Simulated scan of single mutants.
Amino acid sequence: MPWAVAGGLSGVGQAALTALEALEVRYADTFLVSGAAGGVGTVAAQLARAAGATVTGTAREENHAYLRHLGTIPVAYGNGLVDRVRELAPGGVDVALDAAGEDGLRAAVALVADRDRVGTVDACERLGARWIAGRRSAARLGVLVRLWVAGALHTHVRAA
C-alpha cells in the first residue's frame, strides 16, 4: 500500500467508518453523502454500498464520473440541491453524512426525518445533526486495510 493511501485510511477512512457505525447505515437505506468525492465521502460511500445501501453523493460536476465508478449516484452542489436529491430518491433519504460543510448539512437536515441519522464531521451541531468525531483504532484500520488489499475499497489521492 502506498504511503499516501495508508495515511489517508488512518484519518479519513476511520472517520468514515466511525460515521457509518454511529449512523447505523444498513441494507436498503438510502444514504446521502455530502462531499462524496472527498476523502471521508469516498470511503463512506463505498462502505455504505458494501452494506447494501443506495448511495447518492454531492460533488462538483467534474467528479460525477468518479462517483458513478464507485456506484454512487452523483448530484451537483448548489441551489436546488434538496429538490434534486428528492428527484433521485423519491422514496426519501434515510440517513445522511455531511463531509463538505454547512450547505450539505442544511440539505441533509431538510431531507432526513430522524436527526439521529444525520451526521457531520464538521462541528455544525446547531443545525440538529450529530457531530461525529473519528474514533481511531487498530481494529478499524485493519478492516479498512483488508478491504483495500482485497480491492473492495478504492481511494483517490489527489496530491501526495
Score class of each variant (00 low, 15 high):
V149I: 10
A100T: 06
D116S: 15
A50H: 14
A96I: 01
G151N: 04
A110W: 02
V33D: 06
V112T: 05
L144G: 00
Q14Y: 13
A37Y: 00
R86Q: 05
V33F: 02
L81K: 05
A44L: 00
Y66M: 12
Q46C: 14
D29A: 03
H154M: 09
A44M: 07
A100I: 00
M1L: 14
D94H: 14
A4S: 14
R126N: 14
A28G: 05
N79K: 08
D116E: 15
A19L: 05
G71D: 00
Y77M: 06
R135P: 03
A36Q: 12
L111M: 12
L141P: 10
Y27P: 13
A22E: 13
V109K: 06
T54Y: 07
A53L: 01
R135C: 01
R146W: 11
A96G: 11
A107W: 07
S34E: 10
R60K: 11
V5I: 03
A138C: 03
A36K: 14
W131S: 11
L70R: 08
A152F: 03
L153A: 09
H154S: 14
V145T: 09
G119I: 01
E62G: 12
W148L: 11
V109T: 12
G128L: 06
E87Q: 13
T42N: 13
L105F: 05
H64E: 01
D116I: 11
D122H: 12
T72A: 12
C124F: 14
A44K: 05
V12D: 08
G92S: 04
Q14T: 08
E125Y: 10
T72W: 05
R136E: 00
W148R: 15
G142L: 02
S10T: 04
R146F: 07
L81T: 01
R68T: 08
A44E: 07
H156G: 10
G104W: 09
W131K: 13
G80D: 14
L81D: 05
T72H: 15
G92R: 04
T120R: 11
R126C: 12
G128F: 12
A110E: 15
V75M: 11
A53V: 02
A100H: 04
A99S: 12
V12F: 09
D122Y: 15
R115D: 06
R117A: 08
G35H: 04
Q14F: 06
L111N: 02
C124I: 15
A89C: 15
A76L: 04
D114L: 02
H64D: 13
G101N: 09
L23W: 03
G101W: 10
T56D: 02
R158M: 13
T58M: 00
V75H: 08
G8S: 13
A53T: 03
V118D: 06
R130W: 15
A123Y: 13
D83W: 11
R140D: 08
A4M: 01
A96K: 05
V143I: 10
D103L: 07
A150W: 08
A53H: 03
A28H: 10
